[in-house]
């Protein structure tokens, strides 16, 4: 015997073992890529709730979304689609016009005080209605901080479910959106909001 080669393996066996592991393990963050009419979304949950919903083509792709979660939350991240079943179902119902409010719990740990209050106020804007940055700032406790409210909304890690698309400029102008203006328009149109 002149050499000792590693045993031949079927890569599918290793992939199946890894999938069994991911299905049974309890990661700090579970994610899945979810299809939607406004494009593929990277959805991530912690045991506390939904923590991230990213437009896959707008945030540098799955890898960058996961890198950022690894730094901000925990590197114990696994792809575990079954843990995203409720999120996927509610998104499907929303896009099919059968759901106006989301019931999945939200994990707010990524935000500090003011930003969190702005986003929680945003989460309370009813389906089919809009509000202004100034109104969100006032509800968060500082009526003069509409610019800071704008920044907080720009840092919204859970678009669609925390409906920052319902926040528009005082003049009725749509201003910016994390997934691109065409998506803000698509979501407003879905909710029957004229703009």
């Amino acid at each position: 015997m002149t050499d000792l080669r590693p045993p031949q393996i079927d890569p599918a066996d290793a992939a199946a073992a890894a999938a069994r592991f991911a299905g049974r393990a309890e990661p700090d963050v579970a994610y899945a890529v979810v299809d939607s009419p406004v494009g593929a979304l990277v959805a991530a949950v912690t045991p506390q709730g939904l923590v991230r919903l990213a437009y896959e083509d707008f945030e540098g792709g799955v890898d960058e979304v996961l890198d950022s979660l690894a730094v901000k939350l925990s590197p114990r991240i696994l792809e575990a689609p079954a843990r995203l079943d409720a999120v996927r179902r509610e998104l499907d119902e929303y896009f099919a016009g059968r759901r106006e409010t989301f019931d999945v719990p939200i994990d707010w740990t990524l935000y500090s005080d003011f930003g969190r209050r702005v986003l929680q106020a945003t989460a309370a804007i009813p389906f089919g209605h809009t509000a202004t940055y100034g109104q969100m700032a006032a509800q968060a406790g500082n009526a003069k901080a509409s610019r800071a409210a704008g920044r907080a909304l720009g840092a919204n890690a859970i678009p669609i479910v925390v409906p920052c698309h319902r926040v528009i400029g005082t003049s009725g102008k749509l201003t910016g959106y994390t997934g691109g203006m065409h998506r803000k328009e698509a979501l407003l149109r879905l909710e029957g909001i004229a703009f």
Binding site: P6, P7, I9, P11, D13, A14, A15, A17, A18, F21, A22, P27, Y31, D63, L66, D67, L69, A70, P75, R76, I77, L78, E79
Partner: peptide, 15 residues
């Protein structure tokens, strides 16, 4: 992220 580590190492570990 652990998933990437798992993807990279599953075949060497299995072998």
């Amino acid at each position: 992220p652990f998933q990437r580590f798992l993807d990279d190492q599953r075949e060497p570990v299995w072998r």
